[in-house]
Simulated scan of single mutants.
Amino acid sequence: MQQFVNTLLGGITLGMVYAAFALALVLIWRSTRVVNFAQAPMAMVTTFIALELIEHGQSYWLAFVVALVSGAVLGAVVERVVVRPVEGGPELNAVILTLGLFIVLHAAAEVVFGNRYRSFPAAFGIRGMKVGDTTIALTGFGIFTILAVLAVMALLVLLFRFTDLGLKMRAAAFNQEVARLLGVRVGRLLTLGWALAAVVGSLSGLLIAGGSLVSPSYMDTVVVYGFVAAVLGGLDSPVGAVVGGLSLGIALSFVSGYVGSQLVALAALAILMAVLFLRPDGLFAPARERRV
């Protein structure tokens, strides 16, 4: 019973980590209709900026805020300098550029920060909590991760459903020409979308790094599982991203705990294939109208 509880709690924490990254993918998709494969190295760079500040004596929370601000600046610069020149062309162009940026940021981080593993601190304890005489696999930092992801999900739902800004961002993403005719400043909103997505990505990088070792490649596997979580819930749904991440984390935790860790990647692939076969737009995507 204790193993079951610990496996479940570990899966919840792991799932929220995937959900954090999936939320960044959902935000960039909803605001620009681009899948940003460079989201992980962008988050990695801002995490290393925070680590440099911490190692030079600054407080964790100051470094935390600086990382988020750095993410916003980096996202805006990437949109203006890298993505803006290919906007209006085939959508695949922007995707290819983000893949190229993935490689460039990796190489630049290894040159600037080195490729050795470094310890990243956690804001809260990383020891399991005690319930009576039993230690359960839920840490203070794990609780912080869960609350942070739920807060981001709530803010994104509020942004896109209940604010004029969110409506304008979605209009600019779906049809730029019509949005411009309606007086929407498309260029600024696209830049804002990239900046906000980079902030959420930076948050995911900090949550993933907390209490563990980091290197320029520490988020590479998260790209895969975060993308699976986003597709599982639906790229248009913040709630779906969290539910998808949570479901994936729990499923993979049970596979690792009861079947074998070597089958985790295969299980993730099987889940992705099943969702794409049964509901290609994701579990939380709106149902399409049937035409006779």
Rank of each mutant, 00 (worst) to 15 (best):
L263G: 00
Y225C: 06
S261E: 09
S261K: 02
V242D: 02
L14N: 07
G187E: 14
A24T: 05
I103W: 10
L246P: 04
S31E: 06
R80Y: 07
V259R: 01
F162E: 14
L158C: 03
R185T: 12
S204G: 08
G233T: 03
G114N: 08
L182Q: 15
I126L: 06
A179C: 03
A50L: 14
V131Q: 01
G245T: 02
L74K: 08
L9R: 03
P280H: 14
P41A: 02
G166L: 09
G15W: 09
V231T: 05
A179I: 06
V264S: 04
L147W: 01
S253A: 10
S256G: 15
V224C: 01
S256F: 05
P90C: 01
N93D: 15
V35F: 13
M16V: 04
M219V: 13
I96F: 15
F144A: 14
V184P: 04
N115S: 07
T46W: 06
E55M: 11
F102T: 11
L252F: 05
Y60L: 11
D220F: 12
L92D: 15
F160W: 07
I126H: 00
L263N: 00
L276I: 15
L156F: 04
A108H: 12
L101G: 10
V223S: 04
M129A: 11
L207W: 13
A270K: 05
V222A: 08
I28H: 12
H56K: 15
F120S: 14
G142M: 06
F141L: 12
L14D: 02
V228D: 03
L150V: 02
F64H: 04
Y60A: 05
L165A: 07
V83D: 00
A63P: 13
V243H: 00
G71I: 09
L190P: 04
I250R: 08
P286M: 04
T221Y: 12
S70H: 13
R80T: 06
G233Y: 00
F48Y: 15
S59Y: 08
R288E: 14
A148T: 11
F113K: 05
A40T: 05
L190N: 03
V111A: 15
M16Q: 00
V255Y: 02
Y225K: 15
I126C: 03
G210K: 09
L272D: 06
A40H: 05
G125M: 09
V5P: 01
G88K: 03
G11M: 03
G57L: 15
S217K: 15
V35A: 12
Q2V: 10
